[in-house]
Amino acid sequence: MDGFRYFEGVATLAMDENACVGCGMCAAVCPHAVMALQNGKARIADKDECMECGACAGNCPTGAVSVTPGVGCAAYIIQTWIRGKNIPLDAKCC
């Protein structure tokens, strides 16, 4: 993203190329152009741009793309530390 980079090597995004059918859905929904189509298959072009929104994984028809999606705000993450991972996303955080 122009002028903005966050940490490297932290994103949970992963790709199983054997399961990919090359539909291009992941590339279409990614807001950071992390995924790209090459020779009829999707590949991770820039993993460190991934913000783990989960759009690609949720729209992959074969489950070839996976990511642990979440809300990246500190207040919410503190809540998960205190109350556990499966707390409902309420309006408090963002």
């Binding site: 940490f7 932290v10 991934c50 913000m51 705000c73 993450i77």
Partner: peptide, 23 residues
């Protein structure tokens, strides 16, 4: 420092894994 860290939730490019790491 805390408030800036909390602003990650309003930006369109920070990953939750990264935010947790810096927290």
């Amino acid at each position: 420092s805390y408030l800036a860290m909390n602003f990650t939730g309003s930006t369109p490019f920070t990953s939750p894994s990264g935010v947790e790491k810096e927290m």
